[in-house]
């Protein structure tokens, strides 16, 4: 397997680009790339030639996360001021503005069916689930507090939830937190299942394998990517190689590879059968905050695509084969 650079867009934003996702193709548009930046804008890009489709404003403070509905018509963006803006991809019309104070907003993900938006709730130590039709909170998945917290202890902030991931069947939800623990929830029953241990530093990104509802990949500040059997609570493998924090991870649609972005400015491609890094892209000049494989489907799929965004204000697009 191999990554080939297709195009890089320098100064795609006026400041660091912090978030990226693919908007699946619809009848109205081909797959689009959605990026969010510290410059308070969210931008839509046409794939392959990286032409700017539209710039959405309206956020205050930096845009920390973006998410796209699996059907491709609706997307959400969130910023450091803890507002979530849900908008229509084609018209940019605001569909809803979500907030759930005092919980702040970090990573967001739509469930595979598109009926729920999961939002990592930061210091509230919980994940909020929003219904995508009524835009009301339907559940709050809270991480149980460790027993007997001392009042002066700042451990309260340690279960700070940073990242969320849906299992491909939509039944499980995993979230990563500042102290490195990963919590797994049973969504239909709204129940906390267990922690996955192994990281002791923030887990900023995690993703389930598209074919295996048990297999979870996690990226942590300790520089390693872990593979967990999320049901069996077991650490299946460790992949080390990044020189600094691993900020983001995504799994390829064929489930054979993962891509990671790191503070060491590189994007790495890992072959899961060898559990080893097979390629390192070092075209970015600053931390790589987001990587995303293009989801399968759509009319004009020409091989796989991977996009990465970085503090260097640029977006890079690669061919994955």
């Amino acid at each position: 397997m191999k990554l080939g650079g297709i195009k890089s867009k320098e100064n795609a934003h006026d400041d660091s680009v912090w978030a990226v996702t693919w908007v699946p193709a619809t009848a109205n548009h081909a797959p689009l790339i959605l990026t969010g930046s510290l410059d308070e804008t969210v931008r839509l890009w046409r794939s392959d030639d990286l032409v700017l489709e539209r710039t959405n404003t309206g956020h205050c403070l930096g845009v920390a996360s973006v998410a796209a509905h699996p059907l491709g018509s609706v997307a959400a963006s969130s910023s450091l001021d803890s507002f979530v803006r849900v908008f229509d991809v084609d018209s940019n019309a605001t569909i809803a503005t979500l907030e759930a104070p005092p919980s702040e907003v970090w990573q967001m993900r739509f469930d595979p069916k598109g009926s729920i938006l999961a939002v990592a709730g930061g210091g509230s130590a919980s994940v909020k689930l929003w219904d995508t039709s009524s835009w009301q909170i339907i559940a709050t998945l809270s991480i149980p507090r460790p027993e007997g917290p001392k009042p002066s202890d700042k451990s309260g902030s340690k279960k700070f939830v940073l990242s969320v991931a849906w299992s491909p069947d939509g039944k499980r939800l995993a979230c990563g937190s500042m102290d490195g623990t990963i919590s797994v929830f049973d969504v239909p029953r709204g129940k906390f299942l267990h922690h996955l241990e192994g990281h002791f530093m923030p887990v900023r990104s995690l993703v389930y394998s598209p074919y295996d509802s048990r297999l979870l990949f996690t990226a942590s500040d300790d520089g390693n990517v872990h593979m967990y059997d999320a049901e069996g609570k077991a650490l299946v493998g460790t992949m080390s190689g990044h020189a600094s924090w691993v900020l983001c991870v995504d799994v390829s649609p064929d489930g054979a590879a993962i891509a990671t972005g790191s503070s060491d400015r590189s994007v790495r491609l890992w072959d899961l059968s060898m559990r080893a890094s097979v390629q390192t892209m070092s075209n970015h000049t600053d931390q790589v905050w987001g990587v995303a494989f293009r989801p399968p489907g759509g009319s004009d799929v020409r091989g796989g695509r991977l996009v990465s965004v970085s503090d260097d204000k640029s977006i890079s697009l690669y061919d994955y084969s």
């Binding site: 205050c60 403070l61 001021d81 803890s82 104070p101 005092p102 702040e104 210091g123 509230s124 009042p151 002066s152 700042k154 309260g156 902030s157």
Partner: peptide, 20 residues
């Protein structure tokens, strides 16, 4: 307005935790 939001969020959050 941002500042107000930030401060009020903090004020809300500090009900939950101690942040110094």
């Amino acid at each position: 307005q941002n500042a107000v939001r930030v401060f009020s969020q903090l004020s809300a959050a500090s009900n939950l935790h101690i942040h110094g």
